[in-house]
Simulated scan of single mutants.
Amino acid sequence: MTNKDEPSRHLQRRRLRGENAMNLGNLIHSSLPRLAPARSNSSFRDNGCENAAAIEARNVNFSISTRQGATVPILTDCSLTVPSGQLWMLLGPNGCGKSTLLRILAGLLTPTNGKVYVKRPKNYVFQNPDHQVVMPTVEADVAFGLGKSGFTSMEVRSKVLKALDAVGMSDYMQRPIQTLSGGQKQRVAIAGALAEACKVLLLDELTTFLDESDQIGVIRAVKNCLEKSEEVTALWVTHRLEELEYADGAIYMEDGKVIKRGDPMRIMNFIRAKQSSYSNQINS
């Protein structure tokens, strides 16, 4: 790819923020088979499924077809509910389907069948911040999604400052992006979502590539966002059990299914018991 192509590639990535995620997501996944659409959000709400939940999925299934024509199930009858204003974490072994489920909630994938409701506007934040934070400075990056919203320059700056303050990055407005750590870039990505007044944050393993200091900084930034605005809800995909202490609730998946959900500490104990049982089987 030439340097001439670079801005275009970055803009495509950045447009995954907010409602534009669905259009580009369909482009990214155009190699997947065409699947029967899930019932719309509006019909889901009409049936009384919204209640106080910001995120809800019922009996969601997702399958793909191989080149040989075989159907491979990825998700099977997955159901979950995340109450408004809370941080919930989605855990499970590698390949269990948690990131696929998150992408369905974001609108990047269409389920084979099932019902999905996510309060709008919603924003999907990547595992790798370099796929989303692309402008030269922190202020320009957070303001990116506000460019066509009809706000005055003063209104944009006010929204940017408020969003950066929520993630503890207000002192970094003029900093070049390339001088930031991985955790700081993740916080800028979250600020960009908040500046666009999102109601739901869908967070895909944000701390995978971060050291312990940046990991804690990102988690605290998300918690601070929720504490400052009761309207913001977050679903966080993670594989780190220690992050559960920051959650209001947790969901555990295995083999494409939701196995258990509820209190974070109960989920943690459940997972540790499974790990211990597996270790004992291996050792014996």
Results as ranks from 00 to 15, higher is better:
Asn59Trp: 05
Val222Asp: 02
Ser42Ile: 15
Ile267Ala: 11
Phe62Asn: 08
Arg34Val: 15
Ala106His: 01
Ser181Tyr: 07
Thr137Pro: 01
Asp214Ile: 00
Gln281Ile: 11
Ala250Ser: 10
Ala38Tyr: 12
Met268Asp: 01
Val125Met: 03
Arg261Val: 06
Gly150Ile: 15
Gln184Glu: 15
Leu194Asn: 06
Lys119Leu: 13
Gln281Phe: 14
Ser276Val: 01
Leu101Cys: 09
Gly107Lys: 08
Val156Met: 10
His131Phe: 13
Asn26His: 11
Ala193Cys: 13
Met1Val: 12
Glu19Arg: 01
Leu164Tyr: 14
Arg261Leu: 13
Leu235Pro: 01
Ala197Lys: 04
Arg39Asp: 15
Met1Lys: 04
Ser170Ala: 15
Pro33Ile: 14
Met173Ser: 06
Lys260Cys: 09
Tyr278Pro: 00
Ser84Cys: 12
Thr152Gln: 05
Gly95Gln: 13
Lys185Asp: 15
Ala21Val: 13
Arg261Ala: 13
Gln174Asp: 14
Gly262Cys: 10
Val232Pro: 02
Ala195Thr: 10
Arg120Gly: 12
Leu80His: 11
Met169Cys: 15
Ser229Thr: 14
Ala163Thr: 08
Ala197Glu: 15
Gly256Phe: 06
Cys49Glu: 15
Asn59Val: 08
Ala70Thr: 05
Leu241Asn: 08
Glu56Phe: 03
Asn224Asp: 15
Lys148Arg: 10
Ser279Ala: 12
Lys4Ala: 12
Ala54Tyr: 03
Gly262Ser: 07
Asn3Thr: 10
Ser181Trp: 09
Gly92Lys: 01
Lys257Glu: 14
Ser42Tyr: 07
Asp130Leu: 09
Asp248Glu: 10
Gln12Phe: 15
Ser279Cys: 02
Glu231Thr: 02
Gln12Gly: 00
Lys98His: 09
Arg240Thr: 01
Val232Thr: 10
Gly69Leu: 03
Gly262Val: 10
Ala195Trp: 06
Gln275Asp: 03
Met268Gly: 01
Gly182Asp: 02
Ser284Tyr: 06
Glu254Asp: 09
Gly114Ser: 04
Arg272Lys: 11
Val138Gly: 06
Phe62Ser: 12
Ile55Arg: 04
Ser84Asp: 00
Gly114Glu: 14
Gly150Thr: 14
Ala234Lys: 02
Gln68Asn: 02
Glu196His: 09
Gln215Asn: 03
Pro83Ala: 11
Ile177Thr: 00
Pro129Leu: 14
Arg58Met: 07
Leu202Trp: 09
Leu105Thr: 00
Arg103Ile: 02
